[in-house]
Amino acid sequence: MKKLIYLLPLLIVSCDFPKVIPTTFAKDYCSCRYVVGQSKEYCLMYSKQIISPTSWSENPTEKVVVANFITKEAIVKYESKRYGCRIVSNN
């Protein structure tokens, strides 16, 4: 049982699941800010899930949002008024 507890973080980090935290945050934040046009405060509240990203940043000029969780990073970019935001990468 103890071994499993020690192994659990390693299992979580090695699988794809942690990608969901920075990716949902960055995607939701990008669409909220640049498609919907909501305030930064509202979008932060809207985009945060039960587990928040460990860090994130926004480039308002390029309309790019980057979010991190443990070893995973997600990048989402606003494309245009018609096509909104799209996930660039999450590794």
């Binding site: 794809d16 699941f17 969901v20 990716t23 995607k27 996930i87 999450n90």
Partner: peptide, 13 residues
């Protein structure tokens, strides 16, 4: 979320 095809499709891989 751990067993979700929709999350996998929209956000993960």
């Amino acid at each position: 979320p751990l067993d979700s095809n929709v999350i996998n499709m929209l956000f993960i891989s």
